[in-house]
């Protein structure tokens, strides 16, 4: 029966499961890696750094997931999901590392699902509500450029796990930045409406740039990227006054709590459950 033969063929195809399991992370992401914190590394600082980076990634991935079934074209569904999955993967690795470093042994879900807004350390730009596609690509450009510059430095971090996460992330973030930059140029140059929407998006993002600069000293690289893209797009980066406060200190906008309510609702309704 030829159908059965096809079933068998499909089964054989699974010998290289890895290539079909993209983004799904079936196993402990840090399995087999020496997870002891090396001498000379402050475990508390390492954990805090990992949590902050993981929170940025998780909150960003959550906002990207909101585009699912709403993207402007089907090809963009696939692209935005790829980026969201990359960031989710980074968050998982970093939470796991934080749990090892801070001595609590907490797993990734303990950080993601059982902390309140005030315990989150993501920058506020990541938590702002979705907005239109122009806002999404401008925010993505800023955050990926900023994160990429920081991850490049982290590749030399004395903690081998964080360095490895950063090395993996650099490739991903390079692509995210490229995707965002291409779209920023298209929208800035495209039509009057897209240009107007890009200007609005830049105005919305600009006040949150200062917070990024305080978090990591990668100001020049980010400024370079933004200048290149805005020039090619026929736009100018507005002059802004940085908003006071910082998500890194647990000071958030009113938008984070509802985001977390949605993210955490099912998990918190069944605290004893396993999924």
């Amino acid at each position: 029966m030829s159908d059965d033969h096809v079933y068998l063929t499909l089964a054989e195809g699974h010998e290289d499961d890895a290539r079909w399991a993209y983004g799904t992370g079936f196993e402990d992401p840090l399995h087999g890696v020496d997870t002891s914190v090396p001498e000379g590394v402050d475990a508390g600082e390492l954990a805090a750094a990992c949590v902050a980076l993981a929170d940025d990634a998780l909150v960003s991935a959550q906002r990207l997931a909101e585009w699912v079934t709403r993207a402007p074209e089907l090809e963009e569904e696939v692209a935005l999901a790829n980026i969201g999955l990359d960031l989710l993967g980074q968050a998982r690795l970093l939470y796991s590392r934080a749990g090892q470093a801070d001595g609590t042994g907490r797993d990734e879900d303990a950080y993601a699902y059982f902390r309140d807004a005030a315990d989150f350390r993501n920058v506020r730009l990541a938590e702002l509500p979705g907005g239109d596609f122009a806002f999404t690509v401008v925010r993505l450009l800023v955050l990926s450029s900023w994160r990429l510059a920081h991850f490049r430095r982290l590749q030399a971090h004395p903690d081998p796990v964080l360095a490895a996460v950063a090395a993996k992330g650099v490739k991903e973030l390079t692509y995210h930045r490229q995707y965002a930059a291409e779209w920023c140029v298209r929208l800035g140059d495209g039509t009057d409406e897209s240009h107007r929407r890009m200007r609005t998006a830049l105005d919305q993002v600009a006040p949150y740039l200062g917070e990024l600069h305080t978090a990591y000293d990668v100001r020049d690289e980010v400024a370079d990227d933004l200048r290149q893209v805005t020039e090619a797009a026929g736009l100018t980066l507005p002059v802004y006054r940085p908003l006071p406060g910082s998500g890194r200190a647990g000071e958030h906008t009113e938008h984070l709590a509802p985001l977390l309510t949605e993210l955490q609702g099912v998990a918190r309704a069944h605290p004893e459950a396993t999924w």
């Binding site: 290539r19 696939v78 692209a79 790829n82 692509y175």
Partner: peptide, 18 residues
């Protein structure tokens, strides 16, 4: 895709994402 660059980006996402 609207242009060649976008076509490459989409192709990467769609046909080689694994």
């Amino acid at each position: 895709a609207a242009d060649d660059a976008m076509a490459l980006t989409h192709a990467r996402d769609l046909y080689t994402r694994r």
